[in-house]
């Protein structure tokens, strides 16, 4: 790891300024992604701004929302009573990620900002448009088993690796940020980006902007929910495909449906069309199958990930089945 400067500001303003004013400065929270990337030379900030001195750990219920501070640990959020009571889907998704040790370090803000696990992105010897714009994408013609089936471009076919973010997409969370130009609120669907021609830009956060918290609007989606994660081993592995499903069912009829997938795109992949289709329908496997089929419109696989074209719709159906409480 190359040398860098380290500062630990005690105010939000000082932290924002420290990153806004230095082109090569970065925030560090749990360090579980950034320290790894720095050890491998994928990224080499000249200054680290440790935000752990800021009071951003709070989890509270406010009128209309559940508020979770950016520094709340993944393990703490997963076990928090307010989260379990109001947004258990988020707790499920968090508990399925990484390992107990990593969840004790990883923060909500860092989880949102974590970078792709594309192995070529990590291998500094090989071309990668995300790491070094303009060098090419080694995955398109390479080993692309983990890669995207939706929304990819000729520049990048990587996926966003987070589980938590898939649940936050389903729950329509809002990311609250504070930057040199003031505060703003970014709806989750607008936070992460598709790769397009600029795969080096993962999301719409601007230089110096700090994630302060997330807010999840009250939604009546605590009962019929399920986070399904399909992976190579039973635990401690990234998703091949994951689905966050939330339904509101009244007398067998679906009144509200929310769905998002992980492991399939450069951002948490919300299934808007399938959601629309389900509203007003009976919660049956037949309708879930139709929704899954609709959700796969436009999917495009590469040499080693064609299995996802089957795994994804099956996972959608299974997540909906469990969420609705239907027998196999």
């Amino acid at each position: 790891m190359i040398q860098f400067e380290y500062v630990k500001p005690s105010t939000q303003k000082a932290a924002v300024n420290a990153v806004a004013k230095n082109a090569n400065a970065q925030f560090i929270a749990g360090g579980t992604n950034l320290v790894d990337l720095m050890k491998r030379g994928v990224t080499a900030p000249q200054k680290l701004v440790d935000i752990n001195g800021l009071p951003l750990k709070e989890i509270k219920k406010t009128p209309g929302h559940l508020y979770i501070g950016a520094l709340a640990l993944n393990s703490v959020v997963a076990g928090n009573n307010l989260v379990l009571q109001h947004q258990p889907l988020l707790a499920q998704a968090l508990a399925s990620g990484a390992s107990p040790q990593l969840r004790n370090m990883a923060t909500v803000g860092g989880n949102i900002m974590q970078r792709t696990r594309c192995s070529y992105f990590y291998d500094t010897v090989l071309p990668c448009n995300k790491r070094e714009p303009g060098t090419g994408c080694s995955a398109i013609e390479g080993y692309n088993r983990m890669h995207a089936i939706f929304g990819s471009s000729l520049s990048c076919i990587a996926v966003h690796p987070s589980d938590m973010c898939v649940a936050l997409a389903t729950l329509e969370a809002v990311v609250m940020v504070s930057g040199p130009g003031g505060d703003r609120r970014i709806p989750f669907a607008d936070f992460h980006r598709l790769p397009g021609e600029t795969p080096h830009i993962d999301n719409n956060l601007q230089k110096g902007e700090l994630i302060v918290a997330i807010e999840i609007p009250d939604n009546n989606l605590a009962k019929n929910i399920h986070y399904l994660k399909v992976r190579d081993r039973a635990s401690y592995a990234f998703a091949l495909v994951s689905v966050a499903a939330a339904l509101q069912i009244n007398n067998g009829t679906i009144e509200k449906a929310r769905l998002a997938m992980g492991g399939v795109a450069h951002k948490p992949w919300r299934l808007f069309e399938a959601e629309k289709m389900l509203v007003g329908k009976e919660a049956t496997m037949e309708h879930f199958k139709a929704a899954a089929t609709l959700a796969m419109t436009g999917a495009k696989a590469f040499e080693h990930n064609t299995f996802k074209l089957k795994m994804a719709p099956n996972s959608i159906m299974e997540a909906l089945r469990v969420a609705a409480g239907l027998e196999v």
Partner: peptide, 13 residues
């Protein structure tokens, strides 16, 4: 008292 991976945290943190 909480378990962590000591390889992914900077000592100074």
């Amino acid at each position: 008292g909480a378990r962590i991976n000591s390889c992914l945290t900077l000592a100074i943190m």
